[in-house]
Amino acid sequence: MALAPDPMLPRRARVLASRQDTRDTWTLELELDGAAPLPFAPGQFNMLWPFGVGEAPISICGDPAEPARIVHTVRAVGAVSQAIAAAAPGAVLGLRGPFGHGWPTVQAIGHDVLIVAGGIGLAPLRPVILELLAHRGQYGRAALLYGARTPADALYGHELDAWRARGLQVLTTVDVADRAWTGAVGVVTRLIPRAEVDPARTVAMVCGPDVMMRFTAQELTARGFPAARVHLSLERNMRCAVALCGHCQYGPTLLCRDGPVLTWERLRPLTSVREL
């Protein structure tokens, strides 16, 4: 039997394709040597390493049913993410993973599903949507509420209509728009009353910047969604990704191992501790 690969040792991943989604965001398709599959659960992430620059945790946003096509959507915010986003077809990146505890797609079977995403936060939720649509009959009603700064900042615009046609209620909102935009204008929490799900029997999955997730979780619980079924992905900075270095410690939790996805029931007591 082969030894389990050392989780600290990167593998080589070649960029097959790259697409610019928005002004600052790119989606890359990668392949491991020999097109080896990389099975993952929705919500897990890889550590991507543009050689000579550094390493960053990036969620896997491809289709769980196609584990040999590794897809990442990256927002260029600093040195590492810029180098990843700039990787052109043919380039090779180091890759470790998949890591982390992902979304509760299995627990959600038989429930309504509410997905709330802000900005780049839609990327880690895309595998949930693909899995849900591939097994649509196993879930109850399902809705996606997606907020972005402007229409030009919204991700996966070309896919939203297809998802809608396959039985997902999709509501989009932006902070400001001109008249060409036909979706809603306002913060994403304002879409919650329009989601066609039953709060008491819904599993909610929320991903976006911290402030957006906190206000969304508060609004959801105020409307009767149980805190134990509201799941958030806390994308704090990580270094080792294998629960050794303590870089991603959040209260008593190591996010790379116990998270990034955690319930609001577990996170709420920690959010009152400032600057954690």
């Binding site: 260029a76 915010v77 802000g118 780049i120 902070d175 402030v211 957006m212």
Partner: peptide, 11 residues
């Protein structure tokens, strides 16, 4: 919340 630039700092 809208003023906070909820979806992350501008790159």
């Amino acid at each position: 919340l809208q003023l906070l630039d909820l979806y992350g700092p501008r790159a």
